[in-house]
């Protein structure tokens, strides 16, 4: 008899709490961004296609459907880490060679050699190249994501990926070397008496 009561009581409790949980999950449902948008927001938007998808958003969709989230060389470790945090997945090693870290590059067209074929214009995923047929083309450096998709189609190989040198406005302090190191560099000033 007591066993029966105990079973019933537990059953009743289970029903009550189950109902409560169900109610709570309906009532307090979090209406977040669709997961694809959240993933897309973490990708670097170079649209370089190195992940095997035509752009960042398609890759975001693929990740949402279960593809590995370690195929973005421009995003590097940080992006993998962020995606792992977002998706609750394991941190995977980067699939592919990392982009030569931190050196930002943009495309540069040697305009004297450009024949105006518009192939690079068609290849550019962010419309950062202007020009018309038989007119020389040029890169809008501010809009260039450095994806280098325009380099290969060029029939005369007049596109280079050049490093963007730091300027006074983009320069930033570097991280100190850490425990055991002195944050100091020695300058030899020669022309000072």
């Amino acid at each position: 008899m007591t066993i029966l009561i105990a079973v019933l009581a537990l059953l009743a409790l289970a029903v009550v709490f189950g109902a409560l949980l169900g109610f709570a999950s309906e009532k307090f449902r979090v209406e977040g961004d669709p997961i694809v948008d959240q993933i897309d927001a973490l990708l670097p938007q170079t649209q370089c296609g190195q992940c095997g998808h035509p752009g960042c958003r398609p890759y975001a969709e693929a990740i949402a459907e279960g593809e590995d989230h370690n195929r973005c060389p421009p995003g590097g470790e940080q992006t993998i880490q962020d995606l792992s945090d977002l998706l609750g997945r394991e941190v995977l090693p980067l699939d592919g060679e990392a982009d030569s870290a931190d050196v930002k590059k943009v495309a540069f067209i040697r305009e004297a050699e450009c024949i105006g074929c518009t192939k690079c214009i068609q290849a550019c995923p962010v419309d950062a190249i202007v020009g018309a047929a038989r007119q020389m083309h040029t890169v809008i450096a501010d809009e260039c994501t450095g994806c280098d998709l325009c380099v290969e189609p060029c029939p005369v190989d007049c596109i280079d990926m050049i490093e963007v040198p730091p300027t006074l406005t983009t320069w930033g302090w570097s991280r100190p070397d850490g425990v055991g190191k002195t944050p100091e560099r020695l300058i030899n000033v020669v022309n000072l008496r």
């Binding site: 100190p176 100091e184 560099r185 020695l186 300058i187 030899n188 000033v189 000072l192």
Partner: peptide
């Protein structure tokens, strides 16, 4: 003159 350059 040898100068050392360090952060403040």
């Amino acid at each position: 003159m040898n100068l050392i350059s360090v952060t403040s």
